[in-house]
C-alpha cells in the first residue's frame, strides 16, 4: 500500500502554493504541520483529487488520483464544509453513503455504528443546524470513515473539539492506523505529537522536513535553553535568538529559546518538544 506523490506543484497566478513536493506514504498516521498559507490544504486537496496539480502526479498503488477507483478508497474531511440544512445527522450520513456508492441497507448499519463511535447516537435524528461546532466536526469525521477507506485525509479534524473529544479522536485514529494511510493536518501540535508515526513539516509550499518525531526533533536537539533574566537582557536575547516562550515572572522574564551555545549565564539546557520545533520554524520573530 503506497500513496506516491511525485514532484507535485500547484501554482495560483504568481503564487506557488505547493512547490515540487515528493512523498511516499505507507500504512500509518502522518501529521502535516505548517503555518497558515504553508500549502497544507492545497496539498491535501490535490491528494483527494478535488484539485488538479499544475504539475506532477499522485497515485495510490498505481491508481491515478483522478480516477473513480481511487475515490472509492478515499475518506476525506475538508477544512471548511457545510451541510444541507434540512438534514439530520442520520440523513447526512446516508446521503454521503449514497455518494460513496454504499447500498442503503449497509449504509444504515454503518451510519449507526459510526454515530455511536463519534458519540452522536442520541443526536442521530436532530437537525445538523442545531449542532455545535464540535458535533459538526465529529459528524464530518464519521462521514469520512463511511466507506472504510484505505486512505483517510483529514484537514484540521480536531478544530472545534474539546479536550475530551480530542483524546477520543486520537485513540480512534491510532486504532485504525495499522490498516490505513492516515494524513491529518492540524495547528494543535500535541495532537500530531501523540498520534503521528511520521511528521511532515511544510513551509511556503515546500516540504521542509519529514520523519519520525525523534528524527525531526534532532534539528533542535540540545539547542533548547531556559533562563530567567532581567527585561533588558530579555530584549537583547530576543533579538539574537529564536524565542519559544516569553513569560513575565515577578520582576524577571522567563525565556525559552533556541541557541547553539549557552545564551547567557544561568541558562539551562532542556529537552526539545515538537512545539519548540514548530515555533522555531514558524515563529515570525525568527
Amino acid at each position: 500500500m503506497e500513496l506516491c506523490i511525485d514532484r507535485v506543484s500547484k501554482i495560483y497566478g504568481n503564487k506557488i502554493a505547493c512547490d515540487r513536493i515528493s512523498l511516499s506514504l505507507h500504512k500509518g498516521v502522518y501529521g502535516l504541520l505548517g503555518a497558515n498559507g504553508a500549502g497544507k490544504t492545497t496539498l491535501m486537496r490535490m491528494m483527494c483529487g478535488v484539485l488538479c496539480p499544475t504539475s506532477g502526479t499522485i497515485t495510490f498503488d498505481g491508481i491515478d488520483v483522478g480516477k473513480e477507483e481511487y475515490r472509492d478508497l478515499l475518506g476525506y474531511l475538508p477544512q471548511n464544509f457545510g451541510y444541507y440544512p434540512e438534514f439530520c445527522a442520520m440523513d447526512f450520513l446516508l446521503y454521503m453513503a449514497a455518494l460513496k456508492g454504499i447500498p442503503k441497507v449497509h449504509a444504515k448499519e454503518k451510519a449507526s455504528e459510526l454515530l455511536e463511535l463519534v458519540s452522536l447516537k442520541n443526536e442521530a435524528k436532530k437537525k445538523i443546524r442545531t449542532f455545535s461546532g464540535g458535533m459538526k466536526q465529529r459528524l464530518g469525521i464519521a462521514q469520512a470513515m463511511l466507506n472504510n477507506p484505505k486512505i483517510l485525509i483529514l484537514d484540521e479534524p480536531t478544530a472545534g473539539l474539546d479536550p475530551k473529544e480530542r483524546i477520543r479522536f486520537r485513540n480512534l485514529i491510532s486504532s485504525m492506523s495499522a490498516e490505513k494511510i492516515i494524513l491529518l493536518s492540524t495547528h494543535i501540535v500535541s495532537d500530531v505529537e501523540y498520534i503521528a508515526d511520521k511528521i511532515l513539516l511544510m513551509k511556503a509550499g515546500q516540504m521542509i522536513h519529514q520523519g519520525t518525531l525523534d528524527e525531526i526533533l534532532s534539528v533542535i536537539k540540545e539547542k533548547v535553553w531556559e533562563c530567567r533574566v532581567e527585561k533588558n537582557k530579555a530584549d537583547e536575547l530576543s533579538e539574537k535568538y529564536p524565542i519559544l516562550n516569553f513569560r513575565n515572572e515577578d520582576e524577571d522574564i522567563f525565556l525559552r529559546l533556541v541557541s547553539e551555545e549557552k545564551p547567557c549565564e544561568g541558562a539551562n539546557r532542556t529537552e526539545a518538544v515538537l512545539e519548540d520545533l514548530y515555533l522555531y520554524y514558524f515563529n515570525e520573530l525568527h
Partner: peptide
C-alpha cells in the same frame, strides 16, 4: 450554496 462541493467532490460519485 451550502458549501458541500468539496466534500462531495471527494466521493466515489463525484
Amino acid at each position: 450554496m451550502f458549501k458541500m462541493e468539496e466534500m462531495e467532490a471527494g466521493c466515489l460519485f463525484g
